[in-house]
């Protein structure tokens, strides 16, 4: 995904919402309001986003952001 300079993870979430997600049903399993839905694990370059400042993490070139839902069954 192409992002402008100096943007944070929150901007990425909103950009995903605006450009990638097409139906309201898909949106509600990803976001709650403007934040990530509880139960989704976010990794920034394989590190728990809770250690990286969460939504305020400043995106770097070639960062790999992973979203894994734990909401469905095992």
């Amino acid at each position: 995904m192409v992002m402008a300079d100096g943007q944070v993870l929150k901007d990425l979430l909103l950009q995903i919402r605006d450009t990638l997600i097409k139906t309201p049903q898909d949106l509600e399993v990803f976001l709650e309001g403007e934040s990530i839905r509880p139960g989704i694990i976010v990794l920034i370059n394989d590190t728990d986003w809770e250690l990286e400042g969460e939504e305020m993490y400043e995106l770097q070139n070639r960062d790999l952001i992973t979203f894994t839902s734990t909401l469905h069954g095992g």
Binding site: V8, D46, T47, D48, E50, L51, E52, M56, E58, Q60
Partner: peptide
């Protein structure tokens, strides 16, 4: 903005922490 800081593991105090 939150600057990138390397957080050390609270158990081994040696390697970079990757999860909470």
């Amino acid at each position: 903005r939150v600057p990138r800081a390397k957080i050390l593991c609270e158990l081994c105090h040696d390697r970079k922490a990757i999860m909470k």
